[in-house]
Design a protein around this nucleic acid. Structure first.
Lengths: 325, 325
DNA sequence: GTGAAAGCGCTAACAC
DNA sequence: GTGTTAGCGCTTTCAC
């Protein structure tokens, strides 16, 4: 920067100003600085800038899985808006264990991000302390709590489970089963589903829970186990993910079980493919782009000064009736 | 850090040493420093560390799409290995346009990453210059070239197209069509497929190319348009993605076209679901975790000193014969 | 094994 | 509109 300044016949600070706010520098100077930058191939050092200004223009983001489209699509819209505002993402995959997350939070915090994006609301006590101590905007997405660290944007997973049960009961199903993943949020949806379905007079005939991530393979295996091990023969199956639901649809077709008459299938997520399966998948839609955008807006508002009050945004969800149940 | 030192009765440098290399500090001092850190809740400032040491322990990564599992799964294994070695990821979505990528490269470079991960080999001239000028390890994945910026790890997309054509011809198909995305790599596979299939005496009856990302919906629409607009009635369809192939499978089932007899379907990617569709999808497998890991190993080798020679690793691919063709 | 001094390349505050 | 002076919080180098 000093070199650029020398070439342009100004001091180093003027170059700094030219780069951060061109209006603070005369047009003629600006031109000479531009030329000098082109000649030298100067690339500003944001590390030094961050140290001096105490603003890194970096957002830390922790997602359970990089390959899960559900988390990725929230991130995508979140990061788009943040990038438009000059922020870049420091991203890590944190899995589903709070201890792993805690370590990553510490590592990220040492890089002095300007804000933090977390998936979910379950964190270790120390993680919460560190985050609060960092005194930066923190947004927790994909779940809701009355005691967010700072901001949370999500929806009520129990409410989803209940809505799925009501939907199934209203559709006339009297028997149900559940197939899903073992993470905290999926379990809450599952349990709420089972409770409500029973309350509506139905019977829950079985459950298959997988510890690893959702997949079509698990869906197929889930239906097989429901039939072979739990004697499930007809009714509705509520899944924790559209992928599982798709697997069930495929396995049902293979076994010549008619959907939605003999077997009803309810997905979760309304992923791209859900509407295009045969039969099309009835599922729960959460507006993930809106969720990511809302989270980004809330963070930006905090970053641009203003309102220090905690916030909690319920983005809601929507049951989509299609052919599978 | 100075505060921690005062509390522990040592100087600031000693704290720095204790944190970066405990063996350089006496056990007793170490203990007192540890205690002081616990008491103060000190979180080291990696920004200052990066500025002073000129090593950021940050890797820049650019992927075309965050929601595409194919790119995400390479990233995942790459980032796992990098994280194990103390590096974090600065990640951005760069789309499929080289100009967008160039801007992002400039932005990332200003943060002084220790290495760069790029998807693909097509970059603007200025992007190449900046990257070379940065004098850090650069790995280009998912494609191959004889003139990598530094390291490239991938496979030959034309070779994939040819292998798919040979596979189709060997399976006895005489007519073919292609359905795919419009990015450079997909187009190269498609063109190589068409050329080779024709060379094998087959006829290519039509092509549907979508400009946006692959999806099941596009697959269904692709088959519909092949039939309605191109008069396609039987033969093999080579897709640029398993997702498209799945859409074709579904549309074919809906239209009661038998697979693989009347219509053969060839996917690309061997994504999780491919083996679990009905019929199971014949497709091209690329070992993405191995690709990511290989890329990470190459970068780490460069980072830990040693061999400055350019490298090019062909990770290969594999045609998987399943039921769909 | 520990300390003192000198930066890393910027921005902030204040002059002019 | 531009320059000067002081840091930001570490690591590096060189003493001891």
């Amino acid at each position: 920067m000093a070199t650029v300044g020398r070439l342009a016949g100004v001091s180093q600070v003027t170059v700094s100003r030219a780069l951060s706010d061109p209006s603070k520098v005369s047009p003629a100077t600006m031109r000479r600085i531009r030329d000098a930058i082109d000649i030298t191939g100067f690339v500003p050092n944001a590390v030094a800038g961050a140290l001096a200004s105490r603003r890194s223009k970096l957002i830390s983001a922790l997602v359970p899985s990089l390959t899960n489209t559900v988390y990725a699509s929230m991130m995508q819209s979140f990061s788009d808006l943040m990038r438009d505002n000059g922020y870049e993402l420091l991203l890590s995959e944190c899995g589903f264990q709070a201890e792993t997350e805690e370590k990553l939070i510490a590592a990220h915090l040492s890089r002095r991000p300007d804000a933090f994006y977390l998936t979910g609301i379950h964190h270790t006590t120390r993680a919460r302390q560190m985050l609060i101590g960092a005194d930066i905007p923190v947004v927790e997405v994909w779940d809701l709590t009355d005691t967010p660290i700072d901001i949370c944007v999500g929806f009520d997973h129990r409410e989803v489970g209940r809505a799925m049960a009501d939907f199934a009961a209203d559709a006339g199903y009297r028997h149900a089963a559940t197939v899903g993943a073992g993470d905290a949020r999926a379990l809450r949806r599952r349990d709420a589903f089972a409770d409500r379905f029973a309350a509506r007079g139905g019977t829950c005939a079985g459950d298959v829970t997988f510890q690893d991530s959702a997949s079509v393979a698990h869906g197929r295996e889930g239906l097989s186990r429901l039939i072979d091990e739990h004697g499930f023969s007809s009714g509705v199956i509520a899944c924790s993910s559209d992928l599982m639901a798709e697997g069930i649809l495929i396995e049902a077709q293979k076994r010549r079980l008619s959907v939605p008459d003999q077997i009803g299938v309810l997905g979760f997520g309304d992923q791209d493919f859900a509407a295009h399966l045969e039969p099309a998948l009835s599922t729960v839609r959460v507006d993930r782009p809106a969720l990511g955008t809302t989270a980004a807006q809330a963070v930006l508002k905090r970053l641009h000064g203003s309102n220090p009050e905690h916030s909690r945004v319920d983005i809601g969800f929507q049951l989509i009736r299609r052919g599978s149940a």
